[in-house]
């Protein structure tokens, strides 16, 4: 009994020893504004925001970076990421970003868009900005659903996946198959770097951050469009707990939306036709 007590005391002593500024190994970046995120618990949007800001901080480009936020749950992204921002009409972020980048070619310009925004109402803007090879980064968050409006089917919704507008599961006979827009834009001459990542596990977070870094480096070198998809959860829309949603995502989303680089240095590194 006595022994246990003294162990407890030494435990507390050492905790105090450890928790000191000089021993700091990770703190959330100050380029996140500190505003409480409007996202549901466990939603991937917050992690992706933070990774983008970590890269901006590490590259020292905060003052030169301009984001374009979407319509969707990330509509308030400008409140959370501490860089200049503008808000685009639904799906139009790549067109707005094109204008900004052409006026200020030395700024770092990125869009942040959901799958409803980028692959439904904004399909034309997405494809043409990619085809023109605009010197911007597109960060595309694919949670297979319209999260913000109550979980309706998106073009990205998987076959058989239940949503509020497909209560019996997506029927591809009637609604067509899910759209792999990332494989599609990878085939356009204007895209220089195309990758698909996820952010639900520590290892995938580290890889996703490298992909974001690569995307900004491509823009720095003015090589063309850098397009990074993040397969993410919408645990509220999917009606699961966050950890259940992440497991479901691994089991169902990843087989259809495989992770990894698709196009590097302007060359396809995957057989996208087979993947389509």
């Amino acid at each position: 009994m006595k022994k246990n007590l003294s162990e407890d005391f030494s435990m507390e002593d050492s905790l105090e020893q450890i928790i000191q500024e000089k021993n700091l190994v990770y703190r959330p970046t100050r380029l996140m504004t500190g505003a409480t995120l409007s996202y549901c618990p466990g939603c991937g949007h917050g992690t992706i925001h933070r990774l983008i800001m970590e890269v901006v901080e590490e590259m020292g480009i905060q003052a030169e970076t301009i984001g374009v936020s979407p319509v969707g749950c990330a509509v308030l992204a400008y409140d959370f990421m501490d860089v200049d921002f503008t808000e685009a009409a639904h799906g139009r972020a790549p067109a707005v970003a094109t204008g900004i980048k052409r006026l200020w070619p030395d700024k770092y310009v990125f869009t942040y868009q959901g799958d409803g925004d980028l692959a439904a109402i904004g399909t034309a803007e997405t494809i043409h900005a990619c085809n023109r090879g605009e010197q911007i980064c597109i960060f595309f968050v694919n949670n297979g659903i319209y999260g913000m409006t109550g979980g309706q089917m998106a073009p990205t919704t998987l076959e058989g996946m239940v949503s509020s507008t497909t209560p019996y599961g997506r029927n591809v006979e009637q609604m067509g198959p899910p759209l792999k827009i990332t494989e599609l834009v990878a085939q356009l001459a204007g895209t220089y770097y195309v990758s698909r990542q996820s952010i639900h596990k520590a290892a995938t977070v580290r890889k996703a951050k490298k992909a974001i870094r690569k995307a900004f480096e491509v823009q720095k070198e003015k090589k063309g469009m850098a397009f990074v998809e993040f397969v993410s959860n919408c645990n509220s829309g999917w009606k699961m707990t966050p950890n259940e949603a992440n497991q479901w995502m691994e089991d169902h989303m990843f087989p259809f939306y495989p992770l990894g680089d698709i196009k590097v240095d302007g060359k396809l590194v995957k057989n996208v036709i087979q993947d389509l």
Partner: peptide, 20 residues
Amino acid sequence: TGCTNCAIVCPDGAITVYRI
């Protein structure tokens, strides 16, 4: 062990990590 795994996956950036 101060590996930082928990902190880098936290969607709300709520975790700070120290290591000695």
